[in-house]
Design a protein around this nucleic acid. Structure first.
Lengths: 208, 208, 208, 208
DNA sequence: TATGAATGAGCCTTCATTCAT
DNA sequence: AATGAATGAAGGCTCATTCAT
């Protein structure tokens, strides 16, 4: 239950990650986190300064995971033709839906950040979103043979991103509208195929 | 400050709309609403039963506006060929971005509702979202000549919807990523054209 | 719903009597009374000054009924020998248990007054209780042939009274302890007989 | 004002006992208790869960004392003949009137509980009242040589109990009616003698 | 005579935080 | 490094009452 190696801190952080993801920053109480972590009420303030300090640390972890996702998408497309790169990009993102489930804590965390931003959101934009859009932009630009900052390219990037996010953003609306979505391998492959083909056709038309 | 014409009720409702949109249901306090509306703390309870009753009334107003948008989209496509109907649909939605501004209270409200759902969300799904998806589904089904409940049709519906929403959902991420988005007529037309063409191409490919 | 003959006042008083009896002064709200009486929220304040004013009026009614009970007890014993007078006294009181039910509003009202007295309690003591004890005192004094203010007489009065009240005081304790008490004619007669005989024997012994 | 020995808890409990006894559960506010106990408003919540939790603890203490009274009554009658046992029972109860004073917090508490029952009343009935009636029932049954569940026995039990309670239940009515009651040893002995003899005669007559 | 709107004081509870140990 | 007791600010809500009509 105690120790000099900071085990309490780790336990609290773990519980906080799970609970914040599940119910957002506001709806989770410090007492609840500490109780589940078998720690004292004062543990959060002691180890993280205050509740927000703990939240920031959780968010940092999320950012690391998201960066990995981007890297993986880039890696899986390595050396392939442009259209295969796009397919790889979509595939990696959608497979996260399986691995983490529709209620993935990361997406829920982001949902809350977007609806009610904290200063930490800037970090997410700069470290995660911008690199992704840059990669996708280069990819699209390659396909349509246009400069990366061409408006048509940027619009296509948005079109691709929005489709991926719509599926990933685990939210109660999606759950109500598509209650039979099972997120098994078959479903994911079908959606990957759909978004890829849909987008490649759309991208092709944008250049004309 | 007083009167028999129910001015207090109106004032409270107005302030509540603004505050709920800005910060969501939980983070706004009854006291705050009443203070800004120059009303007594008990005004909410008297006129709306409780805090949730007030929120529901605000949300109901939003739902009415959203239903109008759907109706208008349907009306503007009336009698036109399928691809023109889709363009009309996209056009109507995007023009709302201009009319209401990116920070429109309705979209903000929805953003919070999705991130932190209240029981009222069901109403939005049933009254607004489902009809929209139904209309869009019929539209797509007509283009690709498939049944409305075919999986390929449903996927295309998602692809179109997600692009529209991505633009409409005014959020701080978008504001950071595309700070030069001005939402003037020219921009809107360009985006309408993009999404329409992109999607029509994608839809066409889905049938094959 | 309205009228110039004070029908509202009457309706409110009636509802108030029923509700105050059922749940005491505190637990009944003015709104509730007015709603059930199809009257405006302000009706109580308008017709009775305030909530307590209404309560006082209800209490006055109770006092009238209680005085009648005393009178009846006295009347039924008229001209009979002393022991029959006592029996009549007990009988009248216990029969009230039938007529009004164990949850008679009058007794409940008194219960609350005793536990949490208002100035109105004095009235009850002077107008109802003292005359009863006086009558009972004379009765007992006659039986044992002692002066009415003899301590032994007073003690016997208490003994008789307490037995009657224990049965009459409709309270949740009694209901739990004797859940099968049905208050039918047979039960009442049996209890009347018991208390009368028990007390007459006791009284007889007090004189020795 | 602070400390690690739980002095605050004790102080709050003490004040609560006094105030609850004086005015019942509903009419005492948490704020009031805490103010008088020099504690924070949240102290009740922290130490007792909520207001009812605090009340339960107060009531539990009362129940303990009352159980002791029953035990003592039983002990003082140990080995004596039945009529002496009854006398001992009455004596113990009446002597509590001296020791605790007519306004004893326990009796006040019970008065309020009866007039305005909380769920906690069940406990009093089961833990205190039922055992007392059982003991008294056995006692009476022994005297009249009848089964303990005979109706005549039960009625006698009521007759004895009601006389004791009438004296013990310190209430403003009694104080008005018998203002010269001093509760000194002499008075108590006289009353004990009266109730015992009165009841023994009554009991004897019940068997016939 | 009677009303609906509006008020203000107060209640119980919750929560993040701090303090002494 | 960690704790349990204690705090104070705030939140939603209820209620008797008043006011203008």
């Amino acid at each position: 239950m105690s120790g000099k190696d900071g085990a309490t801190r780790t336990r609290v952080l773990g519980v906080a990650t799970r609970l914040f993801a599940g119910r957002g920053f506001e709806k989770v109480t410090v007492r609840e986190i500490c109780r589940e972590a078998n720690a004292n009420v004062a543990a959060v303030n002691y180890h993280f300064g205050d509740k927000m300090g703990l939240y920031r640390e959780v968010l940092d972890q999320a950012i690391q995971v998201m960066k990995c996702t981007t890297d993986q998408a880039r890696a899986e497309g390595e050396g392939k033709p442009a259209d295969e790169k796009l397919r790889a990009y979509v595939s990696v993102f959608l497979r996260r839906v399986i691995k983490q489930g529709r209620d993935s804590w990361i997406h829920q965390l982001m949902m809350h950040e977007i609806a009610d931003p904290t200063p930490a959101l800037d970090l997410v934009v700069d470290e995660v979103l911008r690199p992704r859009m840059k990669y996708l932009g280069e990819l699209v630009a390659g396909i349509v043979n246009l400069p990366v900052d061409d408006e048509r390219v940027l619009r296509c990037v948005m079109s691709v991103q929005s489709q991926c996010h719509a599926l990933m953003m685990a939210n109660p609306v999606a759950r109500k509208l598509t209650p039979d979505f099972t997120a098994d391998d078959g479903q994911i492959d079908a959606w990957t195929e759909h978004i890829s083909r849909f987008s490649l056709q759309g991208i092709a038309s944008a250049a004309r």
